[in-house]
């Protein structure tokens, strides 16, 4: 099974939950798809085994010996990435429109290393992750690469836990496609609910089965209730209500997963939620077998 943890809004507790699940799942393989701000390795620790440069984009390059300074490229570029026959690599989208209009073939597209993909071995199994160059493009492809590395190292039906990225854009789509189930981590705030709706719409559009949990539900019980009724309306099962728990912050500072603190109320709820998800998945597998007969 492949389970992705997403949130829409940033900072709702995706990585805390992903780290806890990694701890609980035993022999799973992990992927940190939040390539813009990867954090899971901070909690899981471990040692990097391999790091591979990642060519994530193309960038235009001008051959000054051929350039006649006609400025056609500057006029053709829609990203204001060319001025004075020099390419601004941060702005260049690698579309090649400049190369098409250049009458003397002075412009070519060259590969750009935009980050690296890393395999880290941790106490709790392998972690596939990436580090991006600052301001680099193409993070959707990088997510795909991180997930490809998972499949290279996955044995049989091994469980895959993916820590997703915030938002509803291309990195989120790349982490959602083809997974078996998505867990949305919501929070009881007006922004949390607005973002929850957007990311739930996206999951629905992509046809990914969805579950929801509410983190810090007791910080605003009224809004938690509102979030819950949205879930009921949309037939999305609510699988957990995690209480606000100062131990979560302490665990973070000690770089430990919250479930390493059995007395923590948040940990108890996360454990219960994990068991519920596994139960639902098994039930579904049975259903599938029955219906395919």
């Amino acid at each position: 099974m492949q389970l992705v943890i997403i949130s829409g809004k940033g900072g709702t507790g995706k990585t805390t939950i992903a780290a806890a699940f990694s701890w609980l799942a035993g022999t799973s393989i992990k992927a940190d798809c939040d390539v813009d701000a990867a954090n899971l390795h901070l909690l899981l620790g471990g040692k990097d085994q391999t790091a591979t440069p990642f060519i994530g984009a193309k960038v235009a390059q001008v051959n000054n010996e051929l350039c006649t300074e006609c400025d056609r490229c500057t006029m053709a570029c829609r990203y204001n990435a060319i001025s004075g026959h020099v390419i601004d690599e941060l702005r260049c989208e690698g579309c090649g429109a400049c190369a098409v209009v250049c009458p003397v073939q002075a412009i070519s597209l060259v590969d750009q290393v935009t980050g690296s993909t890393i395999i880290t071995s941790t106490d709790k199994g392998l972690l596939s992750r990436a580090e991006m160059e600052i301001g680099a493009e193409g993070s959707g492809k990088l997510v795909t690469e991180v997930r490809k590395n998972v499949h290279l190292h996955r044995t049989g039906d091994q469980m895959v836990i993916l820590d997703g990225s915030p938002g509803v854009g291309c990195t989120v789509m790349a982490s959602l496609t083809g997974v078996d189930v998505a867990l949305i981590v919501g929070e009881p705030t007006v922004s949390g609910i607005a973002d929850f709706k957007r990311v739930a719409d996206l999951a629905e559009q992509l046809g990914v089965p969805t579950l929801v949990c509410v983190n810090k539900y007791d910080l605003n019980p009224d809004l938690s209730e509102q979030l819950h009724s949205h879930c009921v309306q949309r037939n999305i099962p609510l699988v957990g209500r995690i209480p606000f728990d100062p131990l979560v912050n302490r665990a973070l500072h000690e770089l430990q997963p919250i479930v390493a603190y059995p007395a923590s109320p948040a940990a108890k709820e996360i454990v219960a939620m994990w068991e519920k998800i596994i139960g639902l998945v098994k039930e579904e597998a049975l259903d599938e077998n029955c219906s395919s007969k």
């Binding site: 078996d180 629905e204 089965p209 579950l211 037939n235 999305i236 639902l280 998945v281 579904e284 259903d287």
Partner: peptide, 8 residues
């Protein structure tokens, strides 16, 4: 993308 799990 895979179907299954959940009422929806």
């Amino acid at each position: 993308p895979h179907t299954g799990l959940g009422q929806q």
